[in-house]
């Protein structure tokens, strides 16, 4: 079956949707919301997105895409370069290795899985940042960021599910 040019464009557009959506979300975390003390604990949306797509549609979030998302996040937000990249890659690989566990599980199991992975990712993020800064960093913002990230998972998962149903099928 031959696909026309426009069909191919359509297919590509559908396939890059998750990655573009993730980049957009990362950009939105940068906006100054002018909510007191919100900036240090803004949820780690890149992690949520990479997790969701790696669990549900790994073909649309390959390791290279996770790398790209991490790179964009690190460059745009001014955090230590490479740290976000490495963690997103590891999360992606972990899910790829444990995919059997996630297939056709209930939402709450997937959410719990996310909480566990986010905990590991937050600890790793904190450690790597401390090592790169060469100083002990107070863990409090990291703890709060972990909590906001876990809390932000359900609404975003709902959003992604809508996108998945509407665009990707």
């Amino acid at each position: 079956m031959k696909t026309s040019f426009w069909q191919r464009i359509d297919l590509i557009a559908r396939q890059v949707t998750p990655v573009l959506l993730t980049l957009l979300l990362v950009t939105l975390t940068l906006v100054p919301y002018q909510i007191p003390d919100f900036a240090p604990i803004v949820p780690w949306l890149a992690l949520i997105s990479v997790y969701y797509w790696s669990v549900h549609r790994p073909d649309l979030m390959p390791a290279a895409a996770a790398f790209l998302v991490g790179l964009y996040h690190d460059l745009a937000s001014g955090t230590a370069l490479g740290v976000g990249v490495l963690i997103l890659l590891l999360v992606h690989a972990l899910i790829a290795a444990q995919r059997r566990f996630f297939i056709s599980r209930s939402f709450f199991v997937v959410w719990a899985g996310f909480a566990i992975i986010a905990l590991g990712a937050s600890v790793l993020l904190w450690l790597l940042n401390a090592v790169l800064a060469g100083a002990l960093i107070g863990p409090r913002p990291a703890v709060f960021q972990f909590m906001t990230t876990v809390a932000a998972y359900p609404p975003l998962a709902w959003l992604f599910a809508q996108v998945q149903r509407a665009i990707l099928r």
Binding site: L30, P40, I41, S77, T79, L125, I137
Partner: peptide, 15 residues
């Protein structure tokens, strides 16, 4: 104008 309040838990910087 401050257009971005970046960094998350480990960096304090704005654009």
């Amino acid at each position: 104008r401050v257009v971005a309040d970046t960094g998350g838990a480990f960096v304090r910087s704005v654009l």
